[in-house]
Lab assay of single mutants.
Amino acid sequence: MSIQHFRVALIPFFAAFCLPVFAHPETLVKVKDAEDQLGARVGYIELDLNSGKILESFRPEERFPMMSTFKVLLCGAVLSRVDAGQEQLGRRIHYSQNDLVEYSPVTEKHLTDGMTVRELCSAAITMSDNTAANLLLTTIGGPKELTAFLHNMGDHVTRLDRWEPELNEAIPNDERDTTMPAAMATTLRKLLTGELLTLASRQQLIDWMEADKVAGPLLRSALPAGWFIADKSGAGERGSRGIIAALGPDGKPSRIVVIYTTGSQATMDERNRQIAEIGASLIKHW
């Protein structure tokens, strides 16, 4: 067993022997301040990774656009098919120029040779490549099948209805392509620590998230040296922004954090800054 596999296998073990965790309302004060600064709703939840206990939450059962955070769930569904012998990570998928959609920095470079399922998941999570996500959605049967996968996990809230990039439209009061912070946090925890996926697939999923290259201005910008984070960000229309993450000190994750916002007129930089400040408060009061 590799060191990384050992780390993920012992996530519940280490967490069980940690000192009790206590909620700190100071972080919620910052979440509410972010709402004021952005002029928009902000949803927040913080779960203990081992027990699933909610440590703090704000608007945990209000719907927010998922945006690209759905790509972690998508690759979880792909990995479940791999575990069941219905898919192979090494299978190569070929596609054409007509398949390319807006923001496809990886797939646009491989029109000639195609990409493997493993490479597509890596591109979808680490670079948020939209064509990679659409190609992977095709392998599982489309958005409705991802929703069905989530329902089978016990998540009857999260739903995907459309493809990239239309799913980022974020129309107010439109339930399409949305989740709730509580539902997303619980589902992410199941994917990373539950028995739904094999140990190898859980490790692969967290490795992809740990290698995320496009979430630097968010929670990662607030992390002290030595902290662990595996995350996936999302951005959408109407001032929408979000991030889902597993993080913790001492090089291992111990909490799940989900943050979503929508309806702001603020710039992307300002949305990023507010999420980073929430992260800084979380870490300060850990």
Results as ranks from 00 to 15, higher is better:
Ala148Tyr: 13
Thr27Met: 06
Leu135Asn: 03
Leu19Val: 15
Asn50Asp: 15
Ser96Lys: 10
Gln88Trp: 12
Arg241Thr: 05
Leu47Ser: 06
Phe14Lys: 02
Gly52Cys: 04
Ser68Ile: 00
Leu74Lys: 02
Glu56Pro: 00
Thr69Gly: 02
Phe22Glu: 15
Lys252Ser: 13
Asn272Arg: 03
Pro165Val: 09
Arg241Gln: 04
Arg189Val: 09
Trp163Cys: 11
Met66Ser: 04
Ala280Gly: 12
Gly85Lys: 11
Ser233Leu: 02
Asp250Ala: 14
Gln88Ala: 13
Asp33Val: 15
Lys32Ser: 12
Ile45Leu: 13
Arg189Asp: 08
Glu145Trp: 09
Pro165Gly: 06
Arg81Val: 06
Arg220Thr: 03
Pro60Asp: 15
Arg81Met: 08
Met67Ala: 14
Pro253Glu: 06
Asp212Tyr: 03
Asp129Ala: 00
Met184Tyr: 08
Pro12Met: 14
Arg202Gln: 15
Ala245Gln: 01
Glu175Gly: 10
Glu164Arg: 01
Pro249Ala: 08
Leu55Thr: 08
Val157Gly: 10
Thr198Asp: 10
Gln265Lys: 15
Val78Arg: 00
Ile243Ala: 04
Asn130Trp: 00
Ser68Cys: 01
Phe228Glu: 04
Val8Gly: 08
Ala16Gly: 15
Thr69Tyr: 03
Asp113Cys: 09
Leu49Pro: 05
Asn168Ser: 08
Leu197Tyr: 05
Asp231Ile: 04
Ile275Cys: 05
Ala215Arg: 04
Gln265Trp: 10
Lys30Trp: 05
Asp250Glu: 14
Ala148Asn: 14
Ser281Cys: 12
Leu282Asn: 03
Ile171Trp: 14
Glu56Tyr: 05
Leu38Gln: 06
Leu192Ile: 15
Asn50Gly: 14
Ile278Leu: 08
Ala183Cys: 08
Glu277Asp: 11
Leu55Lys: 08
Gln97Lys: 14
Ser221Tyr: 10
Ala16Asp: 03
Arg7Tyr: 09
Arg59Cys: 04
Glu210Ala: 10
Leu282His: 02
Glu62Ile: 06
Ala123Glu: 04
Gln274His: 12
Glu166Gly: 11
Glu61Lys: 13
Gly242Asn: 03
Ile244Ala: 07
Gln204Lys: 10
Gln37Ala: 14
Val258Ser: 04
His94Leu: 13
Trp227Glu: 00
Ala245Thr: 05
Leu19His: 14
Thr147Ala: 07
His94Arg: 13
Ala40Lys: 03
Gly279Asp: 03
Asp83His: 04
Arg162Trp: 02
Ala15Ile: 14
Pro217Gln: 12
Pro217Leu: 08
Lys284Ala: 13
Leu74His: 00
Trp163Arg: 10
Leu199Cys: 15
Leu79Thr: 02
Gln203Met: 14
His151Pro: 04
Ser240Met: 03
Ser221Ala: 13
Gly85Leu: 08
Met67Trp: 01
Leu218Asp: 03
Ile125Leu: 12
Asp269Phe: 11
Thr138Phe: 10
Asp83Glu: 10
Ala222Pro: 09
Asp207Gln: 13
Ala211Glu: 14
